[in-house]
């Protein structure tokens, strides 16, 4: 398998002086399901957002699918972004719009301005959007405003929006942190399915080891902006866990 993501000596220093990433070197192969572990503030979100340049890295190289992300500008940056879908802890849907319109926004990277303003007229896009909603089990919610959906349903709409991008990589920033355990597992199941069936590479930050063991093929742990562990989920025992989360941490089980 070839590397789909390569990071070399990636640094991020915020304007406030916080050194969030201190030289990350990382290679991720196509089709991996990477779990990012680490305390809040360890740099997980910053790392994920550097990958699609929602945050500008301070120095270092990012190569995704053979394209230099750091150097990309304008059209090329749009081209890279549409190949990298992102899922957020707070779902980040447009709450006043219907699920269908929210899913259609996943197509924005492919569409001209005029095309995107006339989405409802484009039968092909609408058809694909409905198929994606069906895939996450929400076809009958297409016309409903997303503000009226439950957390789990909103996150599934967000997954459908990601699917609309037809991405090679999915970045998930604590996608289940705002959900109850049962819903969390169902959302992770959808991500796992995309990883296995559609061969999408997933990088997902989490706090639950049980979910990491169930869905991850690889675990990368961050502490203070550095990688402190890189291996398989099975390798994380109590000692390693305490190294990542500090001596006082106790593993919380959710199934």
């Amino acid at each position: 398998m070839k590397n789909i993501i390569e990071l070399k000596n990636l640094h991020k220093v915020y304007a406030t002086g916080t050194h969030a990433l201190k030289g990350i070197d990382l290679e991720i192969k196509e089709g991996e399901f990477c779990i990012l572990l680490g305390l809040s503030g360890s740099g997980k979100s910053t790392l994920l957002r550097c990958l699609n340049r929602l945050i500008e890295p301070t120095s270092g190289d990012i190569i995704i699918d053979g394209i230099d992300v750091v150097a990309a500008k304008g059209k090329q940056l749009r081209y890279i972004r549409r190949k990298i879908a992102m899922i957020f802890q707070q779902f980040n849907l447009i709450r006043n719009l219907s699920s269908l319109t929210n899913v259609l926004t996943g197509k924005l990277g492919y569409s001209s301005l005029v095309h995107s303003l006339t989405f409802p007229q484009h039968k092909k896009d609408t058809k694909i959007a409905l198929e994606n909603l069906k895939r996450v089990g929400l076809k009958e919610f297409a016309e409903k405003r997303t503000r009226n959906l439950s957390g789990g349903q909103q996150q599934r709409v967000a997954i459908a929006r990601a699917l609309m991008q037809n991405p090679k990589v999915i970045l998930a920033d604590e996608p289940v942190a705002s959900l109850d355990p049962a819903t969390a597992d169902s959302v992770m199941r959808y991500l796992g399915e995309l990883n296995k069936k559609d061969n999408m590479t997933v990088i997902c930050s989490l706090h639950f080891l049980s979910l990491a063991r169930k869905y991850g093929t690889r675990v990368i742990a961050l502490k203070d902006g550095k990688i402190v562990f890189d291996g398989t989920p099975k390798e994380i025992d109590e000692k390693r866990f305490k190294e990542i989360y500090g001596q006082d941490a106790e593993e919380v089980e959710i199934r």
């Binding site: 699609n52 929602l54 749009r78 972004r81 957020f88 779902f91 447009i94 926004t105 996943g106």
Partner: peptide
């Protein structure tokens, strides 16, 4: 949040303003 999400889909600045 939605601004970030729409930007991440590869939308242009104008599309981000209109949709997010």
């Amino acid at each position: 949040g939605p601004v970030e999400a729409i930007k991440a889909t590869g939308a242009s600045t104008l599309q981000t303003w209109i949709f997010a």
